[in-house]
Amino acid sequence: MGIGPSTKETTMHHFHDPLVRVVASDPDVDFQGVILVGTPQDNYLKNLVGRRTAFWLEAMRTNGAIISADGWGNSDVDFINTMTEIGDKGISIVGLKFIGKQAGFVVESEHTKFVLDINKSKSGTETEIVGDNNLNEKDAHKALGLLKLKMRKDGQVTK
């Protein structure tokens, strides 16, 4: 488990990143930026980087965030931990990652139901085809839509 050919985000993907494209251009949100965080091996560091991410967002007075990852398996621990840390700060959080039939969460929490599956393959597996299971613009719109609903439910927006 890690990052396979079909989910890995190439340098070109980052250059054209659909999530940045969609969220940064939406006039209904005040876009703050992208927090890039790694996935350390060590458990102490895994918790630490998640906590630091939540501190950043809290200090930025963020109302809502979308977390995405191009790996699965072991890195789910980081993913869910970071979601929990962000959620505990009272910030609305939704996620995007590859699940399919192969990559169900290795850890579950109250946040897992707010994670959308970016799988595109019929088989629901790591197909070893570059670009096959990458996050696309449609996924980005779905996540932003879900975040808007969640922010409303969480009382982040008044109307």
Partner: peptide, 26 residues
């Protein structure tokens, strides 16, 4: 472009950072 008064939204990208062919450069 800033949109004052609208909900503040950020993206968190979790990327590889453990070793050979599992790394990112900024």
């Amino acid at each position: 472009i800033k949109h004052p008064g609208k909900p503040k939204v950020a993206i968190v990208k979790e990327v590889a950072g453990q070793g050979a062919m599992y790394d990112n450069m900024v």
